[in-house]
């Protein structure tokens, strides 16, 4: 059981980078960035190929750069070329499918069971908990860096772009540029997350990123339920904690013989409920009020 929890935490830390990316793109910039699915696999693919070539660290660096580039493509499509933002993400994601296959040498999956990777490199240093330490350090460093970044001048400008566009161009900030920077940083995080996962499970697959945007959002929303919303510190914490809690829930579900096929379905349900909640609440209140008023006047 402890082992199950530990591996859930390890995976949670790795996936938390996606939740952090979505905190930036979805919560901060207010863009549902579907590039995420493609970028995650892109990170996996590059990392796997580079690990097989004997350069696991370089694989992480390249995954970050490739992720940023993918985010840049989506950003240019929507800010410069007038493609609606959701469609821009879908276009990049679709294009990335072929790129990802190419990055894995035209194979749909790529095992790398014996090659050295960033986790095995740390094994000598940290003993048996090495995977948890490596994943935790990556999550912590990324969370802290993102938190600090959002307080800088550039970060403030990005946040304002998502908060009040009118105000941004009136403050001599170029909103298109800020959207681009935001999406590049977010997808760099997603790419790194994919790269770490591939090395962690010693395996890359073309389908690993499918539904990643929903899983990331589900994690973020769960985290927000736990630590609350408002402020950067809370947001960043919510992403990391949420991702870990999400993986623990999945692990518990799997160990209690729930069919693994349904995991993505439940992620989708969590996200749909969480996002629909305010609207449903409003409707319920409206119907309650209508019934109450109707009763009141029926008595007269």
């Amino acid at each position: 059981m402890l082992l199950v929890l530990r591996s859930a935490a390890e995976q949670g830390f790795i996936y938390s980078l996606v939740a952090l990316a979505l905190y930036l793109s979805y919560r901060t910039l207010d863009i549902a960035d579907l590039t995420t699915d493609g970028t995650f696999t892109l990170g996996c693919a590059i990392s796997a190929t580079m690990t097989l070539a004997g350069h696991p660290l370089l694989g992480l660096v390249l995954a970050i750069a490739a992720g940023a580039a993918a985010g840049g493509v989506t950003a240019v499509l929507q800010t410069k070329l007038g493609v609606p933002s959701i469609l821009a993400g879908i276009i990049t994601m679709t294009g990335l499918y072929s790129v990802n296959l190419a990055a894995m040498g035209s194979k749909s999956n790529l095992p790398m069971l014996k090659e050295e990777n960033v986790f095995s490199m740390a094994q000598a240093l940290f003993g048996s908990a090495y995977k948890l330490v490596v994943a935790g350090v990556f999550a912590a460093v990324c969370a802290v860096l993102l938190g600090l970044f959002l307080r800088t001048r550039l970060g403030l400008s990005i946040r304002a772009t998502g908060d009040n566009r009118d105000m941004v161009s009136a403050s001599s900030i170029n909103p298109a540029l800020m959207t681009t920077v935001g999406l590049c940083v977010a997808n760099a995080l997603t790419g790194l997350s994919g790269a770490l996962l591939a090395q962690y499970q010693k395996f890359s697959d073309i389908g690993l990123g499918t539904g990643m945007v929903v899983i990331g959002l589900a994690s973020l929303i769960i985290g927000e339920v736990v630590v609350g919303r408002g402020g950067i510190l809370r947001g960043v914490l919510a992403a990391v904690i949420g991702a870990v809690v999400y993986r623990i829930i999945i692990a518990l579900a799997l160990s209690s013989s729930v069919d693994a096929n349904w995991i993505k379905f439940f992620s989708a349900v969590i996200v749909a409920i969480a996002i629909a909640y305010p609207t449903v609440k409003e409707k319920v209140l409206f119907y309650q009020k209508r019934r109450r008023e109707a009763k009141k006047y029926a008595q007269h």
Partner: peptide
């Protein structure tokens, strides 16, 4: 003219840019 989810000092910092 202001970003509601950002603090007063953050809004001023943006203007100061």
């Amino acid at each position: 003219g202001t970003a509601p989810r950002m603090t007063i000092e953050e809004n001023l910092a943006l203007a100061y840019l």
